[in-house]
Design a protein around this nucleic acid. Structure first.
Lengths: 333, 333
DNA sequence: CTGAAAGCGCTTACAG
DNA sequence: CTGAAAGCGCTTACAG
């Protein structure tokens, strides 16, 4: 590979000028000189070495993204949206998949620090992730879910509690008299908010039976848990799931248990993945503002230092009623 | 952040020794010295800078993976398998999502070259991707699908032609008299192989009507194309799809057209994603050896130079008959 | 077994 | 507007 030095030699100038040309600064270059540099670079097939550039400039123009499970389409769609938003600003997104393992999340954390990413977008598998490594390395972090105030990270998220309440009220408005909350596997800030919203909605209703079960955030695990629930003697009339993937698992379990959705069982998901539109039946869900979230997180990180106080932004969500829950509730707009 | 120099100073030794300790070589270090270095590093929270390390060693211990569409679970599962295999050898996987865009694939190509990845695993959106940049940068490439002999890349893949033939014969054995091949959007080496296997199987059958349609490799696009096909007057009795995602789109289209699977329409997919097991009904598919492929590609890349002759390995696949095609064919083992 | 020093390929003040 | 040079934080022959 040709280096800046080769280009400089061929163009009859210095590496400094080559750098100025390729970075459009910080110094200006005479048009004639610039052209000579560009010509020489083209002839040699020069490609700047990003490693060397980063080492001296102290910036890698890369953002790390840690997701719990890249096989979950919500996180894949999120990754794509963030990559698009980052690309517009000339940033590369490094996608790290924790594969639902806290251990793996820690490994990625270390790896991103070593690779000197400029900043990190985090969706953690843990309730209270250890962000100390990022902090010490001067790398600002933004979480895309509710996060404890004790963390030194910012967050951009929707109001899970309000969303859970809205979804549950929708099921209640349909007159379903027994409702299950299918929550995530661990007691996290997000899980507590889902629970709080669910409880609040149920508290406002008379004579409704409500209880909670948990499963991993995967179709298969949710299908197992839901099948146990649905094939028992005491099955609910409706289920609110804290992710679309879990909801798809419930749809499968219902089918396996010989139940029809929504006639025997109403199902609501959360995330608003594109698959909701091509599931059988179409899935009622809480639509996360994925693109807006992605744009906003990149924007925030661009102008952020690790020592700034954390910010916590709450974006709006949209509740979308579809066939899986019986469509829009009676009496709704 | 503490540097090797800080550690060396604190341990009363040189940066060379710090390097030897952290890399377990290439020189030995006296036990007492090693311990002093480790203590100093721990006290300072030293974390080697991967950028600097790579710049001087010429190796980044990273592998680039380019996939056409990270939102397609097959590629997400593939990415995870490769990441696992790479992790075992201490390599980091950089996942790049082309979002079905050749333009994006080119951008990622450039970006991976600039970041000096040691090698690249490629699933291209193009028929004949331009691998010149990798070649010039001395970066070996392995494709995970059939690829033209004209390319300077290796490949590890299953035999698409044999798989397509096997799947089509399965449908013929069920006695379905009209079959459609739902192929990918572009005329690629893989698409040609699917076509050839399909044609060969059909040629061996009497009085069977067979034709081809195409769609993007996505659930939604396939659902659209399939709906047009299935709501028309001349609809097939069976469809062989070249990806699971397309097959899921067909399942949805069939439901929308009021058809029951497999009674009115048999559907077969390709890839063997985990969702096949929780779809309604369960999807018959060609199971790719994802894990084996992942292990093998990492193994090959570990011992490979860009100037080695390309190797082309063909792994075995498994055809899995499930409910969506009517189960195992009559008379099969 | 260990230290002083060159070098990886850039960027960026410092001079001119 | 441009060049010579230091420096980013490591690794690795070169001496000893």
């Amino acid at each position: 590979m040709a280096t800046a030095r080769d280009v400089a030699r061929r163009a009859g100038t210095s590496t400094a000028v080559v750098s100025y040309v390729f970075n459009d600064g910080p110094r200006g270059v005479a048009p004639a000189t610039r052209q000579k540099v560009l010509d020489a670079a083209a002839e040699l097939g020069y490609r700047p070495n990003a490693l060397a550039r980063s080492l001296s400039s102290g910036r890698t123009h890369s953002i790390g993204l840690i997701v719990p499970d890249i096989c979950n389409p919500y996180f894949a769609e999120l990754a794509r949206a963030i990559e698009d938003a980052a690309g517009v600003r000339g940033n590369l997104l490094l996608i790290a998949d924790s594969a639902l393992s806290a251990e793996q999340e820690r490994r990625h954390t270390r790896s991103l620090v070593e690779r000197q990413v400029d900043s990190v977008v985090l969706v953690s598998v843990c309730d209270e992730p250890d962000l100390g490594e990022f902090f010490e390395a001067g790398i600002p972090v933004v979480a895309l879910h509710p996060i404890s105030d004790r963390e030194r990270a910012s967050s951009i998220t929707i109001d899970y509690e309000a969303a859970a309440q809205r979804a549950t009220e929708h099921l209640l408005a349909h007159g379903y008299g027994s409702i299950v909350l299918l929550n995530g596997p661990v007691e996290s800030t997000g899980a507590r908010q889902h629970r709080a919203g669910f409880d609040r909605a149920v508290a406002g209703a008379e004579g409704v039976r409500a209880w909670t079960i948990r499963s991993e955030i995967s179709r298969h695990d949710a299908a197992e848990s839901a099948y146990t629930l649905l094939s028992g003697t005491d099955r609910p009339r409706a289920v609110y799931c804290t992710t679309d993937e879990q909801a798809f698992g419930v749809l499968y379990a219902a089918h396996r248990a010989g139940l029809t959705v929504p006639d025997d069982l109403a199902v609501v998901g959360f995330d608003g993945t594109r698959n909701c539109l091509v599931s059988i039946p179409a899935l009622t869900t809480v639509q996360q503002p994925t693109e807006a979230m992605a744009r906003r997180v990149v924007e925030i990180l661009a102008g952020r230092t690790v020592n700034d106080d954390p910010v916590h932004e709450v974006l709006g969500f949209e509740f979308v009623a579809r066939a899986s829950s019986g469509g829009p509730a009676p009496g709704s707009a």
